[in-house]
Nucleic acid binder design. Structure first.
Lengths: 145, 145
DNA sequence: GCTGAAAGACTTCAATC
DNA sequence: GATTGAAGTCTTTCAGC
């Protein structure tokens, strides 16, 4: 994991459709060498997978909210219960109270309310505090700096 | 934007390196037809770009926190100030108080403290409340369901 | 809007330094 | 590890339906 690897990752985060010849030239490597480096980064799990970034609004998910989910019990094993709600994009166990922070995307605020209802149905959930996002400044890949 | 488009997007979110022949077969289309559909989804901005998903820990960003940034003034134009801090992965203007919610990834909690210091240096910022993530249940693409 | 085929470009591997 | 060159595969385009 040296500076060349980091430069390759930064390039791929920007555009993973680049040909290895172009990618190599950008970091000062031949196509085959760039290919070999990227292959190893994938093998080692540094690069998990290649995906597409989709406009949430185009998929009918224009409303973004963060919801703090309070619970009366340890939620460390409740991952599947949250994953079963497709509107939930992320779920994190947080420090402090026994709580989970989730990132939710819905089409409307009515649907957000419905997600809250489904959250309450999860065993142990005792409360929710939703925070609606008015504007997203940016969402970007993990920095390689 | 029909069910076939949604199926194509779901496939690409899972693995954007698939050949169009494979992609087409998965949704019941020829390679050329799948290619044409995906090209149009890109043109229309539904698919914004193709990227790689990187393990944050491998990049020395193993600590995740969400920070609520309170301010004494309207923060609607402060995007660049947040973007200048590479440890900040996301920044959202939220409803309620004049506040911004940011997602931060650092190597250590000491570095998180340093990010808080840099946040305070932004014009108008009056306070921060950091919430450290103990465990991430999941982070996934926007659902096509 | 889809199919099938052809041309060109890219990935991928082996040999070599 | 990196490079060069060759082989195989995939992307991309276009005429036809």
């Amino acid at each position: 994991m040296d500076d060349v690897d980091r430069a390759l990752i930064a390039q791929l985060q920007r555009d993973a459709t680049q040909a290895y010849a172009v990618l190599g030239k950008a970091v000062g490597l031949s196509a085959a060498a760039a290919h070999d480096r990227v292959r190893k980064l994938r093998e080692r799990g540094v690069i998990r997978h290649t995906t597409v970034d989709v406009d949430p609004a185009a998929l009918g998910r224009g409303v973004l909210a963060f919801v703090m989910v309070d619970s009366s019990a340890w939620m460390g094993e409740a991952s599947a219960s949250f994953a079963a709600i497709p509107e939930i994009q992320e779920a994190h166990v947080i420090a402090g109270a026994a709580a989970v922070l989730v990132k939710v995307r819905t089409a409307t605020t009515e649907q957000l309310q419905d997600v809250l209802r489904r959250l309450y149905a999860i065993e142990g959930v005792s409360g929710t505090q939703a925070t609606i996002v008015l504007d997203t400044f940016f969402e970007r890949p993990v920095s390689t700096d």
